[in-house]
Amino acid sequence: MESSIVIAGFGGQGVLFAGKMLAYAGMENGLHVTWIPSYGPEMRGGTANCTVVISDRPIGAPIVSQPEIVIALNHPSFEKYVDKVRPGGLIVVNSSLVTEKCERDDVEAVYIPANLIAEAFDQPKLLNMAAVGAMLARRPIVSLETFRQALTAHLPATKTELLDVNMLILQRGYDAAVPLSLGV
């Protein structure tokens, strides 16, 4: 089992942090993980992305041409990655900022108004948690509980007062994306 996740958006949307928390959660589960950021010219243009690979085997390539999961937090990221999602994969779209729909029928798309959800909690910067929650609802590569543990252990000391609201936004994103077949 090997999962690859690309998280992409503007600088300031918590792209790199969300990826690190997924990597920590994978580690908590005793899995192999890699996290690698984009650090080149594209980052200096204001967009940021990172790739996380979580696997039960030692990880070769830390980057992938066709990620299994993409979280697109803004429009340029959606444009860049929608055609790269592996067939059978998942794209989580921040519908607060991305108005297009995924036209592909070989990938699953979930639309989450991540900005709106975070703003409802007066924490607009925590939209990343809404998107990750939605992703974990559709692809539980780590459990919500494990992700919560990672967040609790690794939220920077200066941000611990935001732990609870991180959790609430994560849960709200998760609830909004739980497949209807589960009867929620």
Binding site: T34, Y39, P62
Partner: peptide, 10 residues
């Protein structure tokens, strides 16, 4: 290479 410098692993 820069990728090993920039990447995180356990």
């Amino acid at each position: 290479d820069g990728a090993i410098g920039q990447m995180m692993e356990p």
